[in-house]
Design a binder for these strands. Structure first.
Lengths: 353, 353
DNA sequence: TTCTACAATGCAAACGTTTGCATTTATTTT
DNA sequence: AAAATAAATGCAAACGTTTGCATTGTAGAA
């Protein structure tokens, strides 16, 4: 009934043996007799013993938890990456401490500090939009904690990373639009200070240039990749009276805001304007018209990231070779980029993919 | 350059003082002189010292992490609860270890074991659908680890909990349908072995009974609360040729499946059949017709849960009074339950709520 | 000057494990 | 039966902190 948990000492005392023996018995050490092991295991159960991982880790000088820093956990993309990470890390005996930077640089630095203090065995990070300075990441490396970046990475840092081929995904999307005969494609993206939006812009630009169109001459909005941000901007923009034939949004939420603004102006999607998303949010295939977008295989990205970390955790070498995994995204053509023949109806088939 | 992290011992050695002094200096202990503190802090920075929280926790006999077990992290509802929890726990100095049971009882038991072994200061749990046996929860209590249940709780266990008033939310929804003059309302719900679905069913039943309708006589499906599960069932069901005037789904995903099946049969929503969801997923206001559903205030639930735990962590009493917080959900009437006059158009206004 | 008081620091044990080495006990070999 | 080997267990230190108590140093009071 005491407040304390039972320890191996308690078991030892009860059996008139030492803690060492109990410890070894619990770990199924070959030098301990079957009889003693059985005795130990039984009293362990009896006393409701739970090993103290903390103490064990301290003694062994290594832990079983890895830290993960993401901008926001309640984003479909990130929560899926997390699922992927856990699916690899848990079977390998690791726990995950998840931190949110909330797209805030200071908070990200704070998170790093916490994780180092908690002596996590490794850290997985996707940078906040704000992050430019990477002193905190270098601190991780200096502390000899294996570090893997994913999705939003810093290109100056030569460490393992898993990214989407955003350039390619975006290029394909632009080619798809150009293939529809559309020449003026507005850019509506997240801030290009972040690697992913920069790369998406580059893919878009490359596709246009191959058709002798200059991205710089297209209308362009760069801002927070949210529904409201897009909605507000487009409302203003459309007041000018002119409107491009397609709008390339770098997030499904921006696409939703854009479509809404277009609708308010009485414009039809896709017949008047084609609109694209990016990320394939769960709703993308459920709305009407269904949203053309890019699938990023977020769970697979999580698994790859975790595997890269695991490699480093297992190989005891202090200077692992940085590896870079690039995941190919997949263009998902739905309805918002294809002119309709007959009247568009609500949910025709089973959701694609 | 060595693999080891710097410790207070290193700092002590460098300054020719003891570890005790360094420890106290780092913790800003009043008995340490300003001069020494400054010295310690400087060399700490110099040597890139990061306190070892693990060792500290071991010595102090208490930690700064709390564990959280949820069925799935990549569900909008749960990831929002998590966000709420973190918004309360982080400022209070706690980290969160998140575990997923994946709706699997064995995995949940495993999770509990891990968290106890990691000597978390407290545990927050939402039970898996499968969970009936609660020995593992009793083990937590026996280990004197504060425990708070949320959303999917076990009613036999007299501990703190935060739940939605599912009965009321469901009741309101049913009343709303009945108010449309609809008398036959099919039930399409998750398994009633889980508290939330049981309560939702009870609310539905009560509303019907007030109108002298017996829930038992209504068509009814009980299964996995997913799109596919609903879709498959409804496809079969509709082959019978008859169809109720409304279908009460206990999840937005079930609603999506249901709507799809109805559409395949050429039935119109809401003109032929009204359909409801539950949870207000992000897509609920984005699809067309927009889905009538129930907002659960998941983030608020997370905050409340965390606060309840914090109460227990701070009050040192070993036998805290269990508290129960009930969060009132809110009915959000959109388009799937209101017959249209003119032709339904895509996204009329800014998204509600 | 001696005593008292307080400020600053040191000493050593403790938290619960793990582990190399030493020791005891049992078993086999000669 | 003695010696050599093998098997099982014990001893004690270590992991990096924290903390009650002891010790030292310094300044003010008597």
């Amino acid at each position: 009934m005491s407040k304390k948990q039972t320890t191996i000492q308690d078991i030892a005392k009860k059996l008139n043996i030492t803690a060492s023996t109990v410890s070894r018995a619990m770990n199924d050490h070959p030098k301990i007799s079957k009889k003693t092991k059985a005795l130990v295991w039984n009293t362990a159960r009896e006393l409701n013993y739970q090993p103290n991982t903390i103490a064990s880790n301290l003694r062994k000088g290594k832990g079983n938890t890895v830290g993960m820093i993401v901008p926001r956990i309640n984003r479909h993309f990130f929560s899926n990456v997390i699922t992927g990470v856990e699916s690899v890390l848990n079977p390998a005996g690791y726990n995950l401490i998840i931190c949110q930077s909330e797209e805030n640089y200071e908070k990200e630095v704070e998170n790093v500090k916490t994780l180092i203090s908690n002596r996590v065995s490794g850290i997985l990070i996707s940078l906040s939009i704000e992050t430019q300075n990477i002193k905190h990441l270098q601190k991780i490396i200096k502390s000899h904690i294996p570090l893997v970046m994913f999705d939003r990475v810093n290109e100056k840092l030569n460490i393992s990373q898993v990214i989407n081929d955003d350039e390619a995904g975006s290029y394909e999307m632009a080619i798809h639009l150009l293939g529809q005969g559309i020449k003026d494609i507005m850019w509506m993206g997240g801030p290009r200070s972040s690697s992913i939006y920069r790369n998406r812009y580059n893919g878009y630009k490359r596709a246009l240039e191959e058709h002798n169109i200059f991205a710089e001459e297209m209308p362009c909005f760069e801002g927070s990749p949210t529904l409201d941000s897009a909605l507000n901007y487009m409302r203003e923009f459309l007041k000018s009276g002119k409107c491009p034939k397609a709008i390339f949004c770098t997030s499904d939420y921006m696409a939703m805001g854009t479509i809404q603004a277009l609708y308010e102006k009485g414009l039809n999607v896709p017949n008047d304007v084609a609109v694209t998303g990016y990320s394939n949010e769960p709703f993308a295939g459920l709305i009407s018209p269904k949203l053309t977008t890019v699938e990023q295989f977020s769970e697979e990205m999580g698994r790859a990231t975790a595997r890269l970390l695991l490699d480093q955790l297992l190989s005891e070498s202090d200077e692992p070779v940085p590896r870079k995994i690039i995941i190919k995204p997949k263009l998902i053509v739905r309805e918002t980029t294809q002119k309709r023949k007959k009247n568009n109806k609500f949910i025709k088939n089973k959701q694609e993919l």
